[in-house]
Nucleic acid binder design. Sequence first.
DNA 1: TTGCCTGCAAAGTATTTGCATAACA
DNA 2: TGTTATGCAAATACTTTGCAGGCAA
Lengths: 151, 151
Amino acid sequence: MPRVGQAEGQALLERFRRYLRDQHQPVTRQRDVVAGIVLQADDHLSVGAIQRRLKERGHRIGLATIYRVLEILVASGLVKAHDFGEGFRRFEPVTGQGRHEHLVCTRCGRVLEFANEQLERVLPIIADEHRFQLQRHRVEIYGVCQACQQL
Amino acid sequence: MPRVGQAEGQALLERFRRYLRDQHQPVTRQRDVVAGIVLQADDHLSVGAIQRRLKERGHRIGLATIYRVLEILVASGLVKAHDFGEGFRRFEPVTGQGRHEHLVCTRCGRVLEFANEQLERVLPIIADEHRFQLQRHRVEIYGVCQACQQL
DNA sequence: TTGCCTGCAAAGTATTTGCATAACA
DNA sequence: TGTTATGCAAATACTTTGCAGGCAA
């Protein structure tokens, strides 16, 4: 079950092309291909994973270009960058499903998502109690996923 | 108001020396000095900050040694390492005050702590709902601290 | 056509490792 | 005194940047 449906991925890609045109930036083949992979991913991709998929599909795109496209994608708001403390970042398409947090498997690296109303409610209160102007938060649960427990 | 009182810092340092002796590892001057700085810190120190304090106090200790002492401190359980997504880690002495999470100021880098019972209660439930064997979690609130808001 | 994007390689940052020397027990 | 920690420098991993040439508009 993909995070982003085929159709939603296509729609996001279309929005990215539009974003580039609006910004008077060219829609290059590299940008289209990299964005296509990230925006249609059913997972939280690392740069390494993106590079691998590019190779599999026969595309020869430089590493620097991947990073530069990701920068644009994040700036466009269509992609979010995450740092799960692995020493590298991962990238996730921003779908309509709204705010969610992450469960990260420390064995296989798989990332699951969850939403919890209670959590989202309490964090602004805590920030307020400490006179913090909340900008964003990060909630991650690390553990062993069901599949890895059975090995 | 320091996180770790002078007395508590001293006690932690004493425990570190005992830990080394128990492990049949030498208590060298470098280990003692670096541990002293980290264990008595009133803040979440980066390696850069540790290095700076060492220089201020006239100690010439190699960078590699700092990292190696930190590795021992973390292994001993007296220090916790944190990754606040800044591209480097920070280190915090483990005091008796128990579990807490962090508020990180995105302007000045200051780190405040907070504890919230509701939060600690809900996270294991969420892990369970997703058949995740919980190992640890991370809750961070990023925003602008009170001092920085007034600038 | 023309300016910006791309690819390559080099640089940059945080951290780790190898090795000769020095210091602790 | 023998073992092992230290200091320096080189290596590593991820990411960013500079520059010559290629491509989108």
